[in-house]
C-alpha cells in the first residue's frame, strides 16, 4: 500500500507547483486597458464569423468507440502478461473470451470500413 502515499503527495505537490506558476504570473501582470477587441476569439485578425462549438465529423466518434473496445483488450493483455504463470483455468477462459470478443469487434469494424477516414 506504500506506493499510494508518494502518488498522493506527488499529486498535491505538482498542484502546488502549477498553482504557484500561475500565482507568480498574477503578481507580475502589468495594468492594462480593458478593451473588448483584445478579448475576442483569435481568428487571424478578422471579424469572428459563426459559432466555434459546432457539430464535428462523425468519424471522430467512431474512433472513440473503437478505442473503447481495444482499450479493454489492451488492458486484458497486460493483465494476462503480468500473471502469466499463476492464472486459474477459469480466469484463462474468461480472459480469452473477453479478448476474442474484443478482437471480433475490431475485425468487424475493419471489415465494415468504419475505421477508414472519409
Amino acid at each position: 500500500m506504500f506506493e499510494f502515499i508518494p502518488l498522493a503527495v506527488a499529486l498535491v505537490i505538482s498542484a502546488i507547483v502549477a498553482a504557484l506558476i500561475v500565482g507568480i504570473n498574477y503578481l507580475l501582470i502589468p495594468s492594462s486597458p480593458k478593451d473588448d477587441m483584445r478579448f475576442s476569439p483569435y481568428e487571424c485578425g478578422e471579424e469572428v464569423i459563426g459559432e466555434a462549438q459546432v457539430r464535428m465529423n462523425v468519424q471522430y466518434y467512431v474512433y472513440g468507440i473503437a478505442y473503447l473496445i481495444t482499450d479493454i483488450l489492451a488492458v486484458t493483455i497486460i493483465i494476462w502478461a503480468f500473471y502469466q504463470y499463476n492464472l486459474s483455468i477459469s480466469s484463462i477462459v474468461a480472459l480469452s473470451f473477453l479478448a476474442f470478443s474484443m478482437l471480433f469487434g475490431i475485425l468487424y469494424s475493419i471489415r465494415k470500413r468504419l475505421l477508414r477516414w472519409v
Partner: peptide
C-alpha cells in the same frame, strides 16, 4: 482522436515488455 488511437499499440507493446519481465 490521435492520442486515443495511439494508446492501443502503446499498451500492447508495453504488454510485450511485461511478458518478458513479469
Amino acid at each position: 482522436a490521435q492520442l486515443l488511437s495511439f494508446e492501443i499499440p502503446l499498451l500492447v507493446v508495453i504488454a510485450s515488455v511485461v511478458v518478458l519481465t513479469n
